[in-house]
């Protein structure tokens, strides 16, 4: 049954498709080029990225380096949950951070139902949409983005790209041939729904809060500017 469906469908498509060689099709495709990206709210990629994260109902903090990132994460966990419990994938970048300094002892591995907070180290940030990019694997199991109440994300300043096409260019660069992961996800906000009376509610199935920490030397005025651009209040 299935095999006949396959050959039947392919035969029908061959009949309705225009005849061309592989090379001609490839040339035609290259000539089409790529789409234009959305206008950025600010010329500086990091400011635009932060403004869009805020517009996506995420929250943003700055950390000059990994030591400060540890303190920022510790403070966030204490303020939110009065604990220092955290789950994180086996990302060497996270493992190498001085967690003891902030009293945080991450459990390394996959998130479980009931975990309050998970930390991911994003591969990329995308200024155009305020998204962060992760892929599945030991360093960030797929469920870590989805099961916890709060999803915390570290992203390096130098990993913030301008737009979605640049993001794919980097993904292709960073993933050697044959090592394509099971899943690549662009996350742009806490899990949300507007299915009841078109009213937006956070925490539909996944994280209720999404906290992005931009790691690297960023002046605090940049965050203030991003807040002003996103329309979020400056508190």
């Amino acid at each position: 049954m299935a095999e006949s469906a396959r050959s039947d469908i392919l035969a029908r498509l061959r009949a309705s498709s225009s005849p061309a060689t592989k090379e001609q099709i490839e040339q035609e495709l290259v000539a089409l080029g790529f789409a234009g990206a959305a206008a950025l709210p600010a010329a500086d990629h990091c400011i635009a990225f932060m403004a869009n994260v805020l517009a996506n109902r995420g929250s943003v903090e700055l950390a000059a380096d990994r030591a400060e990132a540890v303190r920022v994460v510790g403070r966030y966990l204490y303020n939110r949950f009065r604990t220092h419990k955290l789950v994180a994938g086996n990302d060497p970048r996270i493992a190498a951070m001085p967690w003891r300094d902030a009293g945080v002892l991450p459990r390394f591995g996959a998130a479980e139902n009931g975990d309050s907070a998970a930390l991911s180290y994003a591969r990329l940030g995308v200024a155009e949409t305020g998204a962060i990019v992760t892929w599945t694997g030991r360093a960030n199991p797929g469920r870590n983005n989805l099961l916890p109440e709060d999803h915390l994300v570290l992203v390096n300043r130098e990993d913030v790209v301008a737009n979605l096409e640049d993001a794919w260019r980097r993904i292709r660069q960073d993933l050697p041939a044959g090592s394509w992961p099971r899943g690549i996800t662009f996350t742009a906000g806490p899990s949300s729904t507007a299915d009841v009376e078109a009213q937006l509610v956070m925490g539909a199935h996944g994280p209720r809060r999404w906290h992005v920490i931009l790691v690297g030397a960023t002046p605090t005025e940049a965050l203030a500017e991003a807040r002003a651009l996103s329309g979020a209040d400056a508190t």
Binding site: A38, R138, W180, T185, F186
Partner: peptide, 23 residues
């Protein structure tokens, strides 16, 4: 919906890889 990107835009390629702990 009037968004620039939805909360999740995912690209799934197949079953668990050697490096995966879930999926």
């Amino acid at each position: 919906t009037g968004q620039a990107q939805t909360c999740y835009t995912s690209f799934y390629s197949g079953p668990q890889r050697d490096d995966d702990v879930d999926g």
